[in-house]
């Protein structure tokens, strides 16, 4: 193992994802293999319903894989105790917190749960981590606001702050740019980029913002109906993989500009 890539943290081998229902398996995607290294920002792109969410749910342990393995730091995902896993992997879901009555500070500090005692008492170290998370996402000023008072852009930043407070080497975000305007989409993705560089965290996000993902991600996973491609964005462009994303009747990928254009 040591002879392999030393920066590898998360490794996926021959993964099949999908749903198992009454002994019948519905395969959404299969033969996925990739490796995530320290400090990488990874985008997952794919058409609606192609299985991005299923993949993310499987990677976070919310859903069992149909076949293949996911391992973090050499240990299989399912062998981790829930609490142990919570200190390695944090998730930002698309949904807002169920209780909108939570204050931003309360929301973010819940990220410390895997580390606190049975009463949830915060130590000075916990508070330091929370302050840092609020600061780096520029949300300190919001800390006393209630979640229902926030705009979508603010809420997304706060959700990221919560994941940062959880202090994990891996963060997985499910479509962090939905509901946001162009400025905030770029803001959120740039923030993620900055975090990977400054903290060496692995940040994986699914998105529909293909052009933004190409500009910022270190690697991109492209989920299509037939195959899964995983590489650096420039290589994927060279090989013309992005055209496999959608049916080619309306839009085409322009390799020069790195974005989709309407077909004449």
């Amino acid at each position: 193992m040591a002879s392999e890539n030393q920066h590898s943290v998360l490794k996926v081998t021959n993964l099949s994802i999908g749903y198992s229902h009454k002994k019948k398996d519905t395969v959404v995607a299969q033969n996925l293999s990739f490796e995530l290294n320290k400090g990488e920002l990874i985008g997952m792109v794919g058409a609606n319903g192609i299985g991005k969410s299923t993949l993310l749910r499987t990677l976070t342990g919310m859903q069992k894989p149909l076949a293949g393995t996911i391992s973090i730091l050499g240990k299989k995902l399912e062998e981790y105790h829930p609490l142990e896993l919570a200190s390695l992997l944090s998730v930002v879901f698309t949904e807002a917190p169920a209780s909108k009555n939570l204050s931003v500070l309360e929301f973010v500090s819940l990220g410390r749960q895997p580390y606190t005692n049975w009463m949830g008492t915060l130590t000075p170290n916990d508070k330091e981590k929370i302050d840092w998370a609020l600061e780096i996402t520029d949300t300190q000023k919001l800390s006393q606001r209630k979640c229902f008072e926030l705009s979508d852009g603010q809420l997304q930043r706060v959700a990221i702050a919560r994941a940062l407070a959880q202090d994990t080497p891996i963060i997985i975000l499910d479509e962090p740019t939905t509901h946001l305007d162009l400025y905030h989409r770029a803001y959120v993705l740039k923030l993620l980029k900055k975090l990977t560089k400054e903290t060496e965290k692995i940040i994986l996000f699914s998105t529909h913002e293909i052009d933004l993902a190409i500009q910022l991600s270190d690697k991109i996973g492209v989920l299509t109906t037939d195959a899964f491609y995983f590489d650096q964005p420039c290589k994927l462009i060279e090989e013309g993989k992005f055209n496999a994303l959608f049916p080619e009747d309306i839009i085409l990928f322009d390799a020069k500009t790195g974005r989709f254009t309407i077909k004449d």
């Binding site: 976070t60 919310m62 105790h81 829930p82 609490l83 142990e84 896993l85 919570a86 200190s87 992997l89 944090s90 998730v91 879901f93 949904e95 917190p97 169920a98 209780s99 939570l102 929301f107 819940l110 990220g111 749960q113 895997p114 606190t116 049975w118 009463m119 949830g120 959880q166």
Partner: peptide, 19 residues
């Protein structure tokens, strides 16, 4: 009490926090 606090975030978040 601690788990109840985590549940305020919703089931998915609570699970991801190790509850």
């Amino acid at each position: 009490v601690k788990s109840l606090n985590a549940l305020l975030l919703g089931e998915n978040y609570a699970k991801s926090l190790g509850v």
